Computed example of a mutant assay.
Amino acid sequence: MPRMVGRAKKIPVPEALRSFPLAPRHLSLLSCLLFDGPTTVNELAARLQVAPTTASLLVGDLHGMGILDRREDETDRRRRIVTVAADQEPAIRAWLAPGAAAWRKALDPLTPDQRRMFVDTLLAYEAAVGEARQDQGPAS
């Protein structure tokens, strides 16, 4: 796991995006939009497992940087649809797509049950790390 994280961190940010103050929290959101397509803030919040207000703040950050676009939902004008800005999509795709391709390559040979076990194992690991941090209490 540390090697995987280390390799992911070494993927260079494309030149077109280097001037933006992007944080890891932005990458998850961008990945969702890139691979799942345009969506609402509430749907992003559910996918990212964060509060809608948190997703809204992240979208606001990225929209302010010109990385995301927001438009009215034509079927419900109260909703806003969020998408990667067309002029930023090539750089974001070049940056994030290799990771998605690697996951597909790793997961394609597995049966659906094996994939489910793999995902469940990662979720269990994530939960255990969270519990261990809670048990340690606040950092001094």
Score class of each variant (00 low, 15 high):
119 V>S: 02
94 A>Q: 11
99 G>Y: 01
112 P>K: 01
119 V>L: 14
100 A>G: 11
112 P>S: 02
105 K>L: 15
113 D>L: 15
119 V>E: 11
114 Q>C: 00
112 P>L: 04
108 D>C: 12
113 D>G: 03
103 W>T: 10
97 A>Q: 06
121 T>R: 09
123 L>Y: 09
99 G>N: 00
102 A>P: 04
112 P>A: 03
110 L>W: 00
93 R>M: 02
118 F>W: 13
114 Q>H: 02
104 R>V: 15
107 L>A: 11
120 D>I: 07
117 M>Y: 08
115 R>Y: 05
98 P>R: 09
103 W>A: 07
95 W>M: 09
111 T>V: 02
98 P>N: 04
102 A>I: 08
99 G>E: 01
99 G>A: 10
101 A>E: 08
99 G>Q: 06
110 L>E: 04
98 P>L: 08
107 L>H: 11
106 A>Y: 05
97 A>K: 08
97 A>W: 07
93 R>I: 06
106 A>Q: 09
119 V>Q: 07
105 K>W: 10
118 F>G: 00
115 R>L: 01
105 K>N: 12
98 P>G: 07
97 A>F: 09
105 K>I: 07
98 P>I: 00
122 L>T: 08
101 A>W: 01
120 D>R: 11
107 L>V: 14
103 W>S: 07
121 T>Y: 15
95 W>I: 13
109 P>G: 00
93 R>F: 05
109 P>R: 03
110 L>Q: 01
110 L>K: 00
118 F>R: 14
102 A>Q: 13
99 G>F: 01
118 F>V: 15
94 A>G: 14
93 R>S: 07
119 V>K: 06
100 A>K: 08
99 G>D: 01
96 L>D: 10
104 R>G: 13
123 L>R: 05
110 L>G: 00
100 A>N: 06
94 A>R: 09
92 I>G: 11
118 F>H: 13
96 L>F: 11
94 A>C: 05
121 T>A: 10
117 M>Q: 14
106 A>T: 12
119 V>T: 12
112 P>M: 05
123 L>Q: 12
120 D>F: 07
104 R>A: 15
113 D>F: 01
115 R>E: 04
97 A>M: 10
102 A>C: 09
98 P>F: 05
103 W>K: 12
101 A>M: 06
